[in-house]
Design a protein around this nucleic acid. Structure first.
Lengths: 240, 240
DNA sequence: TCTCGCGCAAGAGCACCGCTCTCGTTGTTG
DNA sequence: CAACAACGAGAGCGGTGCTCTTGCGCGAGA
C-alpha cells in the first residue's frame, strides 16, 4: 500500500483533485462565502452527499483551498526570490513583495481567503501554519543574506524595547534566522505592513485615494526595505 | 412631519435601532457570515418577513452595520486624538494608532467586517466612504499639525517618483490637507501599514511569532511615525 | 477464479437560510 | 369618517450544509 497503490486509491486522488479544482474555480468567481458544496457536486455531475466521502465538511474543503493558496503565493514569492540578483538585497525585496502583490491581484478571492477575515469559526488548523510561513521565510532569507553580506545599514528607528527583543530572540533562535533582534522586529513589522498595503489596495480602501497603484506600491515597498536597513544601491553610499 | 413626528415614525426608528442592536450582537458573537435575518427576527419576536419592512435585504443590514463600525472606530480615533497632548506629535500618533488597535481587539468581527475581506459582491455603497475616512483624517490631522509646527523631520527614504507625487498632490489639494506630496505618500503608506499590523495580530498571523503584542505594536507604530517624519521627543533634538 | 466485503453514489430527508407574495389589521391623514 | 399606507403574520419557493439508509459494483483475498 505504499509504492504501487490500487486503482481505487488513484481514482480517489483524482476525484479529490477535481473537487478542489472546481471549488477553486467557484471560489475565484464568487468568493469564499458563496462556495457551495452542492454547486461543486452539481458541476461535477455527482450528488451532494457523495462529496462528503472526500471532504467531511465545507470547512474542510475551504481549509484545503487555504493550504493550496498559501502554497501558491509562497511558491510565487520563492520563485521571485530565486530569479532576483542575489547580490542586490533591494531588488530581491522588491521582487518578492511585487510577486506577492501580483498574485494577490490575480487571485483576489484566494488572497481574501488567507489574508482577509478568517471565514467561519476561524481556527488555523495546524496544517496551514507551515505553508503560511513560506512568504515570511522568503523575506527572512533576504534579510539574512543581506546581513551576512554586511549590506544591512544600521537601523534609524529607536531601538526595540527589551520585551520585544527577547520575543524576537526566541523566534530567531527557534528558526535559526541569524538576525539581530532589532532587525527581526523591523522585519516582522514590514512583513505585516506589506500585507496592509496589498490588502488596502485589493479591498478598495485606496479607491479615490491612490490611483497610481503600481508606482505607489513600489515606492512604499522601498520604504519597507529601508525600514529593515536595505537601501537602494543608487541611493546608498557604497563605501561608508 | 418634521418637528413632532407621529408615533409610527418614532416606533420605526426604535425598531430599526433594535434590529441593528440585535444584529450587532449576533455579529460580535458569530461573525458576519453567520448573521441571519431569521435569527435576528426570531430574537426580536417577529417573523422574518417583517424585517424586510426595515431593511430591504441582508446586505443592506450589513451595510448599516459597516457604517456604524466605521463611525465607532472613527470616533475612538478622534477621541484619542483630542485627548492627546497637541504639542507632541509622536504621542498623538501613538494614541490614535493604539485606540484603533484597541477597538479592533474589542470588536474583532466588526473590524473584520470593515477592514477584512469585503463580504459578498463587495461594493462600497457610497454611504460608507465618508465614515471610512475618519481614521485616516485623524492621522492626517496629526501630520498636518506637526508639519505646520515645523515638527516634521526631513524624510529619510528615497523621494517618491513623480507619478506618485502628482497623485498625492491631487489628493492633498482635494481635501486641503496642507501636506507636501512626499509626506502624504508616506502617510498613506503608514495608514495602510497600520491596518496590516492590526489585521495580522487579529487574524492570527502573529500566533507563535509575536507574543509581546502590546510592546511590539507600540514599537512598530513608532516606526510608522518615524516614516512620516514624526520622532519621539526624547530621541529628537529639541532645538535644531 | 470466485466470492465476499468495503467503498461508493444515490436519494430522501432535516433544519435552516434569503427572499417574495398575499392577506388581514391598524395607525395616519385628508 | 373614510381612504390610504404602513405594518405583522403566514405560507411558500428555491437554495444551503449535512445525515442516514440503501443498494450496487469493483478490488482484494481465499
Amino acid at each position: 500500500m505504499s509504492a504501487i497503490r490500487g486503482a481505487r486509491e488513484r481514482a480517489r486522488d483524482e476525484i479529490v483533485a477535481a473537487i478542489k479544482e472546481e471549488a477553486r474555480r467557484q471560489l475565484a468567481r464568487d468568493g469564499a462565502a458563496k462556495l457551495s458544496l452542492r454547486a461543486v457536486a452539481r458541476e461535477l455531475g455527482m450528488v451532494s452527499s457523495a462529496l462528503y466521502r472526500y471532504f467531511p465538511s465545507r470547512d474542510e474543503l475551504l481549509t484545503a483551498l487555504i493550504v493550496d493558496a498559501y502554497d501558491a503565493v509562497g511558491a510565487r514569492a520563492e520563485a521571485a526570490l530565486a530569479a532576483a540578483d542575489p547580490a542586490d538585497p533591494a531588488a530581491r525585496w522588491s521582487a518578492v513583495c511585487g510577486a506577492v502583490r501580483e498574485w494577490a491581484l490575480a487571485h483576489p478571492h484566494e488572497y481574501a481567503l488567507i489574508y482577509g477575515s478568517p471565514v467561519p469559526g476561524y481556527q488555523a488548523p495546524e496544517a496551514t501554519i507551515e505553508p503560511a510561513g513560506r512568504v515570511a521565510l522568503a523575506l527572512v532569507a533576504i534579510a539574512r543574506d543581506a546581513h551576512a553580506a554586511g549590506r544591512l545599514k544600521e537601523l534609524q528607528v529607536p531601538p526595540a524595547p527589551p520585551v520585544v527583543c527577547t520575543d524576537l530572540e526566541r523566534l530567531t533562535a527557534e528558526y535559526a534566522l541569524g538576525l539581530p533582534a532589532p532587525v527581526a522586529a523591523a522585519l516582522v513589522a514590514s512583513w505585516a505592513q506589506l500585507f496592509g498595503l496589498i490588502g488596502f489596495e485589493l479591498f478598495g480602501q485606496f479607491n479615490n485615494v491612490v490611483e497610481a497603484r503600481d508606482a505607489f506600491f513600489a515606492h512604499s515597498v522601498r520604504g519597507l526595505a529601508h525600514q529593515i536597513g536595505i537601501t537602494d544601491p543608487e541611493s546608498a553610499p557604497a563605501g561608508s
